[in-house]
Design a protein around this nucleic acid. Sequence first.
DNA 1: TAAAACGTAGAACGACTTCA
DNA 2: TGAAGTCGTTCTACGTTTTA
Length: 329
Amino acid sequence: MTTEPTALTGAHAPDWEAREETGPVSRLSKTNRADQQDRREKASARRSRSRPLTERSGVSLRTEVRDWGALDGDRPVTWREAIDCWRDYIRDKEDIETVFEDTSGNRATGSKPHRFDPEYSDKQYAKLKDLERGISDEYGKRLHTAMLTFTASATPDGDPLPAADHLDGLLDSSWDAIRRALDRALDGRRYERLAILEPHPGDGVNNGYLHVHMAVFVDGTVRPSTFEPVIEAHVRNCDLAEWDAHDLEDDSTISVRHAGADRADEDDDSALDELAIYLAEYLGTYGDDPLDAPEHVQAANALLWATGRQRWRPSNGAQSYMATEAREP
DNA sequence: TAAAACGTAGAACGACTTCA
DNA sequence: TGAAGTCGTTCTACGTTTTA
């Protein structure tokens, strides 16, 4: 992986933003506010693609997403250009893919896919199954799972942030605080966690920007209130995090399930039969051709690729459960 | 040509310190 | 006393290069 820090200086950075696209903010129509809002959000999503990946100096980016021919030296390309670079990278990888074919015409691809390849997703899913088995065996019926969601505003001042700057703002400022708060909240209890970065869908202002889902596996009973200090630590430490998006009463912010409950336990309709499937659905581990993915997914993948950020963030313990690699037939 | 080795940066984590 | 900052160590993800 080859990355280099940006040399762009914020104070003298060119005006990347296509301000002519925005124009003065028009007054909302009393009769058509929803349409106006919808148009504004779509316009904001388009503007985000026209912005450079970062407006800060010292941000490490792959060389492919740096414009070395710029008059004032190298600078990061726009998010839209980065998506094109990522697509070229995927196509290049397809060109050199190793394909095996047996006498019956059955084909199999090479053994070491890049992280956006469906085969890689399959391996991740297999690892999730290992984690499910390991945790279930270890914790038994005491196993409770929680899903926590951490977001950061992509438009804190009304205009979309550079994608890499938003991602850094989401992760760098509060990640340590989140981990420590989780340690304190679950003090004395065995637990493991797996965090994953997932893109915001749709045409809204957050389109393609990433947020964090964190699955927490706890040996013992927990309640949503157990994790409130963790959410609070994130909002407190992340400048881009807003309470509006972290309603402690909302199931999308904190969701707790008794994964180890008996199937026959009708009083607990949130019991999990297939934890890995549940996670795979939530965490988006299934995939086909990455170039066929929705635009917001490709935008997020391009951002991860350009910045070298890891999509999966398991705790050390979770990693040990996931370490066993199934032999492929 | 598959597998191993390697390089780099990200990430986890514990210890220690500082601060309110 | 809880929260957060810093530092050093260790491990891992990811991608590339080398080797058998």
